[in-house]
């Protein structure tokens, strides 16, 4: 019997495909998310828009809160740790969370190094802005990838940019001759073996979700049509006027992402979405996606 293998780590992410993973701060949030059809929840100290508004250092959630959430729902529970903070990750593993998100939404603990994720039995998901960043994280042991987008803005533009960058990066590699692949690995700053693999298979070796700015069912379906495997929703649910209705609508829009009639129907009567932010009004230091490399 084997445990903590790459197949098991990547496999759990495969089970989440076609689903919505929702940010939750409390056990009460987690129950609302599960009831609405979330395929997993993500525990964090504050939702991204609050982190953005409050400032200060954003850390891993209080373990008390995480244990309450683990107790409250039967779906997988993910939790965020700071980039490079391998002890927060060790704590999350010890608490029994099902996935760790090494996340730029929290304040980085190390500006040069991400966590060496192969040492853990718990699987990791990491953010990326393009293919090179995705492959660096996979090289370090990430078993799932998500776009960074720009969390807490309710603005989908960065998630779209990042998903398109990953997709076009993959397309480029699939049409390259063998002699071009080392140069491509160099220019991407990506592990050569993973570039070879994409040249052969035409896809990422792990599941890729969209995240960062999803506020409406239409945003979620847009990301699905752009080719992601599922969607993370952060502030978009619990900062909206009617979280339960919006959560349920986003789940349905992800399942039926190719069916405009369904998306139109579930988008009706949801009340106000979260307030949005134009990314161009954010200073570079306020852009969370720039954290990590």
């Amino acid at each position: 019997m084997e445990q903590g293998t790459v197949l098991l780590k990547r496999g759990l992410a495969q089970m989440l495909k076609g689903g919505v993973i929702m940010d939750v701060v409390t056990a009460e949030h987690a129950k609302i998310a599960e009831e609405a059809g979330a395929c997993a929840v993500m525990a964090l100290e504050r939702v991204p828009s609050d982190i953005r508004a409050d400032g200060g250092v954003a850390r891993m959630s209080d373990p008390t809160k995480i244990l309450e959430i683990l107790e409250a729902v039967t779906i997988p529970v993910m939790a965020k740790c700071r980039i490079g903070h391998f002890v927060e990750a060790q704590i999350l593993e010890s608490l029994g969370v099902d996935y760790v998100d090494e996340s730029e939404v929290l304040t980085p603990a190390d500006e040069s190094h991400h966590i060496w994720k192969h040492d853990f039995k718990v699987p990791f998901v990491c953010g990326c802005r393009d293919l090179g960043e995705a492959l660096r994280r996979i090289g370090e042991g990430a078993a799932m990838i998500r776009t960074k987008g720009e969390a807490g803005t309710g603005n989908i533009v960065e998630a779209v940019r990042h998903m398109r960058a990953v997709k076009s990066g993959i397309s480029r590699i699939t049409v390259m001759g063998s002699e071009e692949l080392m140069a491509e690995a160099k220019s991407l700053g990506a592990p050569f073996e993973l570039v070879l693999e994409i040249n052969r298979t035409g896809k990422l070796p792990v599941v890729n979700f969209a995240a960062g700015g999803v506020a409406t069912p239409a945003d979620a379906a847009l990301m699905m049509q752009l080719g992601c495997d599922g969607v993370f929703v952060g502030s978009g649910i619990f900062k909206a006027e009617d979280p339960a209705a919006r959560a349920s609508a986003i789940v349905q829009a992800v399942t039926h992402f190719k069916d405009p009639d369904v998306i139109a129907r579930v988008s009706t009567g949801l009340g106000e979405a979260m307030p949005g932010i134009d990314i161009r009004t954010l200073a570079e230091t306020e852009q969370l996606a720039r954290r990590g490399w």
Binding site: M1, E2, L7, L8, G96, K121, V122
Partner: peptide, 14 residues
């Protein structure tokens, strides 16, 4: 019985 072996850390291959 759902999740009968435990959480993800108890997942296994055999």
């Amino acid at each position: 019985k759902r999740n009968a072996f435990g959480r993800q850390r108890d997942s296994f291959e055999t």
